[in-house]
Design a protein around this nucleic acid. Sequence first.
DNA 1: GCCGTTTTCGGCCCGACTGTTTTCAGTCG
Length: 581
Amino acid sequence: MPPRDPLPDNGELAAVFQTIADYLSLDGASVYRTLAYEKAAESFREHPTSVAELALRGELRTLPGVGQAVESKVAEYLEGGTITMLEQLRATYPEGVLDLMRVPGVGPKKAKHLWTTLGVDDLHSLREAAEQGRVRGLPGMGAKTEANLLRALAAAESRSDRHLIGAVEPTAERLAAALRALPCVDQADFAGSLRRRRSTIRDIDLVAASAEAEIVMDAFDALPEVASVQERGATKLVARTHSGFSVDLRVVAPEAYGNLLQHSTGSADHNVALRGYAQRSGYKVSEYGIEETATGRTIACRTEREVYATLGLPWIPPELRENRGELEAARENRLPRLVTLADLRGDLHVHSDWSDGRATIVEMARAGEAAGLEYICFCDHSQSLGMGKGLTPDRVLSQIAEIRAVGVTVPGISLLAGSEVDILADGRIDLPDEVLAQLDFVTASIHSGFQEPVDRIMRRLTAACENPHIDAIGHPTGRLLGRRDAYPVDIDRLVTLAVETHTILEINASYHRLDLSAAHARLARDRGARLMICSDAHSPGGYDALRFGVGEARRGWVEADDVVNTWPLDRLRVSRAGPSH
DNA sequence: GCCGTTTTCGGCCCGACTGTTTTCAGTCG
């Protein structure tokens, strides 16, 4: 039987094997077996080229975590679009039970129990059961569990229809590139919240410059990533991609491309404010041009810069367009000189396979060098991190030696030895001071006790900031976008503390975190706190995340000098030996 | 289920925390 056409992409294969893993955990399979399927899913997700083609060439087992069982299941899926074992699991458990496991506090055991004893088979029936007080009767589940469930469900619902920027951007980039490749298209870009670098995005806004809107829209409709077109007018269409994103495409004549790009980039608040400002200066702004009210003359702008220039303003970076003072700043010529990706000289938060990273110190060093970095700091987890992967004091000392040794063999990049040390629930730091003192740079993070009240959390953060060996606080609020809210942090007090103790606050660039958030980063920066934008890379490709961190920082009006990893290493070293240490 | 100079079986995934317990199961990182 010939393989399916078109071949499934890596994301689809990863999703299939992740689903098998989820079902197996529900089914009570061995943890190792479940983990094996998860590992295969991750391998597929991470692989840069087509996994399906790799399988057809018989080379699938070159991927880490793929053995005989996974290989034959991929083959089965490529042939028939289905896997017998998965179908059997589907027949046993309603698909909605898997959703239950994504609610914080519900794992496979509770999900299965909720289903077998209460008949709860999706999020909706879980909410009903909790509201009716039926959950608290189950063994191991009391009134508090029930209340936590309801809170988690409410939080999950309020963020349901937004996607993470890192999940959306590759699709948006491919679609924009496909438009640019059309002969009748002069220019095309994504606009909207994605261009403003918001951390979550509802839909993809695309704009194209062309005199042939019909042809552009026909071609777009025919793209392999486009699943269906819901609405279509003369210059605008709304479509859905196979990856589940909603896309708005607007086409305008090249003469007015700047107007459309500006209009579609938004935000709505920025545009309302801009139009008000324009009106007072005698202009009317729309996506088709700027009308001079006195003469009725319309000025079409090919570029966005012309739009702002026509109104007597400098170009405003998209990340600032939220009506949070950017118009006043532009008018008074005091827009910030926002930090850029090119400004970053180093990355102070990188993992290796010494803890939960997937690559060796050499591999991470080479990849950092290839990413254009001058220095990186290995901050592997300390002993309390689970999975037995955190480093004991002895292992930390061995790792320091290894980093020094590798540093000699990879001369193009400076390697620092650090740690991402846990701030334990009682405020203790997970490594003794004499070990911390050996390290070049120490970041302290909270990885447990998220439910604690704000004063307990603050006591822990205070202890970390006041420890002279600790240089930075990692992902300071612990939020996981779309999955988990921040633990309660009094950000005002944390920033004050950071300034007083010269502790750096991280903007963790992983698009699952982006923590500090833009709003918090702006507060920190206004108060003179030092920041760092770090990838938290766990693999060679992980440095890619830096651009998301830069986007979040720019939304927080952060300039290069506010960010210590834009500094040359010498300046960073001097500062570490400075007054606070 | 995967892996391998400790090698074809037996490790791998441990410790903290929460909420419910009267000694611990489930969840999370």
